[in-house]
Design a protein around this nucleic acid. Structure first.
Lengths: 206, 206
DNA sequence: GTCTATATTGAGATAGAC
DNA sequence: GTCTATCTCAATATAGAC
């Protein structure tokens, strides 16, 4: 189920790198990456600082591994015929659902990615990959306009930014143990993006 | 035009507290509040660290002043009969426009507010005020549902979160020197939220 | 109002014992 | 694989001269 390089369990039971990473990313999201000290991380893991260094060579390596999870998951959304073939509005809907799924399933990792400010090379590189994702999305919206599937009073670029601003904001409040499943949430997002909040004439879209 | 306590200019020309605060908040947003050192701030202001302390008693005071700007502006959106009287859908539209305006005009301050994680008392207090704002919004959406102005297949709480997730995401890409005015943006947001992106039957809403 | 100098604390990272 | 102890550097904040 993991989407990135598998972590061959080593050392004694309890933590593999993936399990440690989950704890570490939670700390990054609580304090911000830069402001998260190795002391805090070691405390949360129940280890000493130098024990942590036995598993990760630096704080930046932790960040890179975490960002790879989010970026890998996002990029996978486009690895499907449904994202690259067929009418643009259907392709958008597919990507929209995939992005909502990523927001839910990879929530902490995506949160970390979305908060990057590009102060180091690794951060800038990750942001570059994210921008590439955004550009593919934008081309889809332009295609939708050309196919007459997008309302004409809205610029495709603005439509794309508003849509994925909405999707990205999910990480701010979605909780896996909350009342909604990712599928239900995806359905709500698709409905919102397609036809807004007003009482609708409710042709079902599919 | 400032919405908060005015800063009586003191000291030699160049910086008043408001002008300094703009520089400081930009630094906070670039590095994250916790990770922004007074050294960085002093450098950006072209002052020594201790000179900065002559204007602000602590780093936390800078944060509080900045957050007050964002929160004050948001709360003002509700200080209008249009936000408290009349049909819920019209009230929502008014608040929506006001929130877009705040996102544009107070962009750096709102960015700072939206990124808080609640690690100090001051931060938690600011987040509490923001939550109060969100709750007023949520009651508006519940009212809209009761008045039959909200599509029935969407929970009002989810509708509110998606809507203001979209609005809050504006701070991530809106630039004052970009091609869109706040008014144009507000119009696009209202249209999106009301009727989505599909080709519409285009009754103009007003 | 701004400076240099400094007190104090905690950061990331390493050495080397067990 | 984990520990204690420590290195080096930079953080917030203050003292006191100009």
């Amino acid at each position: 189920m993991t989407t990135t390089t598998e972590a061959p369990r080593r050392g004694r039971p309890g933590y593999d790198r993936d399990g440690m990473l989950a704890v570490i990313v939670a700390a990054f999201n609580d304090h911000g990456y830069d402001a998260t000290s190795l002391g805090i991380i070691a405390q949360r893991l129940g280890l000493s600082k130098s024990a942590v260094y036995h598993h990760f060579s630096s704080k930046e390596e932790m960040l890179e591994l975490a960002l790879e999870k989010a970026l890998g998951a996002l990029e996978q959304v486009f690895d499907s015929p449904q994202a690259t073939e067929g009418p643009a509005d259907l392709r958008i809907r597919h990507v929209l659902r995939g992005a909502v799924r990523v927001a839910c399933e990879q929530q902490p990792y995506l949160t970390l990615l979305l908060r990057l400010r590009g102060n180091t090379d690794a951060q800038r590189h990750a942001m570059e990959r994210r921008r590439a994702f955004d550009q593919r999305l934008r081309r889809l919206f332009e295609l939708a306009r050309d196919e007459g599937a997008l309302r004409e009073d809205m610029d495709p670029g603005v439509a794309e930014r508003l849509t994925f601003g909405l999707v990205n904001s999910l990480v701010e409040w979605y909780r896996p143990d909350g009342p909604m499943t990712p599928d239900e949430l995806a359905k709500a997002v698709v409905a919102f993006v397609r036809s807004g909040l007003r009482v609708s004439e409710s042709r079902d879209y599919r």
